[in-house]
Each structure stands twice: as C-alpha cells, then as structure tokens.
Nucleic acid binder design. Structure first.
Lengths: 87, 87
DNA sequence: TATATTTGACTAATATAATAGTTATTTATG
DNA sequence: CATAAATAACTATTATATTAGTCAAATATA
C-alpha cells in the first residue's frame, strides 16, 4: 500500500506536536497562548488538528524551535524544481 | 551573525516556492486556483507572502508533492522532544 | 481529602482570510 | 504589430478563524 500523507494528517501531526512539546516544556495552554500573543482557544484548535492561520501555526513552530526545518524543506522543494510526477 | 529564520521569511519562501513550481509546471494562477478549489486572489496572496490559512497552504504543498516532507519535519520535531534551548 | 490548576466544550462577537468581481498593466503568442 | 493571456492592484461581500467569556469535568498539588 501507498500510505499517502493527507492534509488532515499534517494538521493532526501539528496538533500532536504542539501538545507534546508544550507538555515537555511544562506549559499550560494558557501560558503558551500568552507567550505567543494568541488565545487559549486557538491553541486548543491547533492541538485538535483544526484549520488555523499560517501565522499562528508558525508561531508555535518558532517557539519550539523547528521553524528553520520547515523553512529548509520548503526551500528544498523550491530549488529541486519539484515538478508533478507523471508516475 | 546568526541569520535567524523568521515567520515572515517562511511565508515569503512559501510564496516564492509556489510561484516557481507553478511556473515550472506551466500553470497560471487561474489554473492552479481552480485545481485546488480556491480563488485566484488567494494564490496571489500566498505568493506575496501574506498570511493565509493552513488548509490552503497545505493544498499547494500537496499539489507540488512536498507535503510528506513537511509532515516528516514536524514528526521529527515531535519525537526528538525539541525542548526550548537554554543557550 | 481539599484546593487549585488545567482542560474540554461550548457561545456570541470580532477580526480577518477568502471570494468574485473589476480595470490597468505586463507578458506571451499569432 | 496586433491580440490574447497573465498578472498586479484594487473593492465589496462572504466565510471563517480568532477572541473573550463561561462552566463542568478532569488532573495535579497541598
């Protein structure tokens, strides 16, 4: 089987990651939200894998230090001219 | 110097990547927008590095085939318990 | 156990991303 | 050159993400 990654998969993964990193840093949603200058409800939505704005998701990525890795992957997709596969 | 990656940097990079991959696939914004079931204006905003919804950005990533790479980076940040550096 | 903190699950109001249009300019094609 | 296609830059409207607020249930802490 192919096990294709879906958009929903990515959103759920973002949510799981936010929750786990928040926990391992001993932060409540309230605290993380305040630090990132967003609301507790938005953190909750992100952790639930709901749709969100790019800005808020990137704030989370930035706070937990994996923003550069995201940047690099996009840059790679760019420079390697990732045309749509014909196969 | 440190050359830190900012949230704006990532948004601009996403925009550049969308534009370049769209061009290299000989697609107009109109065509890409229709394929992804979003509007031409939204594609334009993304290419300009403006804020957008996660769903729409991931649609672009999915269409040009780098959604799994995004997924993997988030998964790595997750499993390696990327605590906030003290240094 | 008692108390405090955190979380899940809502609601109503607000802010803003997305949309469908339009027009002028730029770029590609005959 | 002439014409078509694509893009830049707007506007007004709609859709929806964000917010502040509440309250009950779950969890952690004294």
């Amino acid at each position: 089987m192919l096990n294709v990654v879906t958009i929903k998969d990515v959103k759920v993964k973002i949510g799981e990651t936010c929750k786990q990193l928040r926990k391992s840093n001993n932060l409540s949603r309230e605290e993380l939200a305040e630090t990132l200058d967003i609301s507790r409800a938005t953190i909750q939505n992100i952790e639930y894998g709901k749709n969100a704005t790019l800005d808020n998701v990137l704030k989370v990525a930035n706070h937990f230090g994996f923003l550069p890795y995201i940047f690099n992957e996009i840059d790679k997709a760019n420079t390697s001219q990732n045309d749509i596969s014909l196969y």
